[in-house]
Write a protein that binds this DNA or RNA. Structure first.
Lengths: 214, 214
DNA sequence: TCAAAAGTGTTAAGTTTACACCCATGA
DNA sequence: TCATGGGTGTAAACTTAACACTTTTGA
């Protein structure tokens, strides 16, 4: 028979680095921690893992609870397990990074949770080791966006190439040449042009694209 | 006051995918699981996290216990947390991949633990989700070796370029052109030639190299 | 003297970067 | 008609890939 009972057990939480893109800026969803320790400090969206759910299920449940969203793109980033990372009790946290289309989340829910989007480049101090989590997630996202079509997860279904380029620029933190960007991204064949034109940004109007095999 | 006490707690283990390179083959250290569930099945080297140690400390402790080695190169790979991954109890496992020089480990210790090196390409079924762990670790190692000097961790201090190339080939699973390989690896400037010659493999002898800033 | 592994350069193909002007439109 | 963002091609630099012969030496 199994007998692990001489070993210690731990609280296990899931923290989500939820990225959104708005006003040409990469943002992270945070909220004010509603309980001690660290009550009132800024925190990533997280919660404890339940007995009957996998880590990924937990992340999905928490995400749904805070944003109303289902079926969201997420990837596990790392486990954070320093002994004193949570000054209250020993908690081991599994971190996911999550990409959502800014337009999709349920504003009522985020309000209820005191959740707010903060520019990634202007993050204040977050509780515990959450700043490290964001930093790591951002680095990872910067890699992933280069060779997988994840950028689409941060945009509405239809978008212009200029929007997409701005997204890349804000994730990578550097300017990109317009012609080179367009050639490169179109060559990858994840995009298809629609016959719609977006006139929000220019008199001339820009072709709207969408990701195929999203 | 902190009060997490309404949340469940979990056993947390660390599993190590320990890679070694011998006979021109990439190998993984496994052992026979000494307790139920899965007693006698092949398992990665692992153990439970203790209360007062970080995840990385746990990995180091376990590594020392099985191989006698300290200060070993390791990186966290992922957390595995499916509800039923361990058929005995719910256990969340944090996986590290570890690179050691095959010549360095303590053979007495590995014997005591029934540990054995197995060719990565011929792994039989391991217990639980351990095959997945190895697969993921191998993929990761394949990436890391391309742009960081981690290959050195799998080799003795002094080695020939042919040995190094064979190591790359066995990690990447494909042949590499000798001239291109040598040029590329030397350009990276992690290696320095010694004035020693290795005559094990050829009459002529091959220059021994070492990694700088190991 | 020969078998076996070590060592060594060049060319072509492909990829990445840098760079500047015309287009279409609504106000 | 003009201001604004949309759209387009080419050449140079660099990187990667393909390829074959000579060297050294111990048996």
């Amino acid at each position: 028979m199994t007998n692990y009972s001489s070993y210690p057990q731990f609280f296990v939480s899931v923290d989500c680095v939820i990225f959104g893109f708005q006003d040409n800026t990469l943002k992270v969803l945070t909220h004010q921690r509603p309980y001690d320790p660290g009550r009132g400090e800024l925190s990533l969206i997280g919660g404890f893992v339940h007995r009957d759910e996998s880590l990924e299920d937990a992340a999905n449940r928490i995400l749904k609870e805070f944003t109303g969203l289902d079926n969201v793109y997420m990837r596990q980033l790392a486990a954070f397990g320093e002994v004193e990372r949570d000054p209250g009790e020993r908690v081991i946290s599994i971190v996911y990074y999550v990409l959502i289309n800014y337009g999709d989340y349920d504003e009522e829910l985020t309000k209820q949770h005191n959740a707010n989007w903060i520019n990634v480049d202007e993050l204040p101090q977050l509780c515990f080791d959450h700043n490290k989590m964001v930093e790591k997630a951002r680095k990872e996202l910067g890699e992933d966006i280069k060779d997988t079509p994840v950028a689409g997860k941060l945009l509405p279904r239809y978008f212009t190439l200029t929007q997409l380029q701005t997204l890349f620029e804000s994730i990578q933190g550097q300017q990109i040449d317009k012609r080179n960007f367009r050639r490169a991204i179109l060559e990858k064949n994840y995009l298809s042009a629609t016959d719609m034109i977006d006139k929000q940004m220019s008199r001339r109007g820009a072709t709207l694209y969408e990701f195929t095999n999203n």
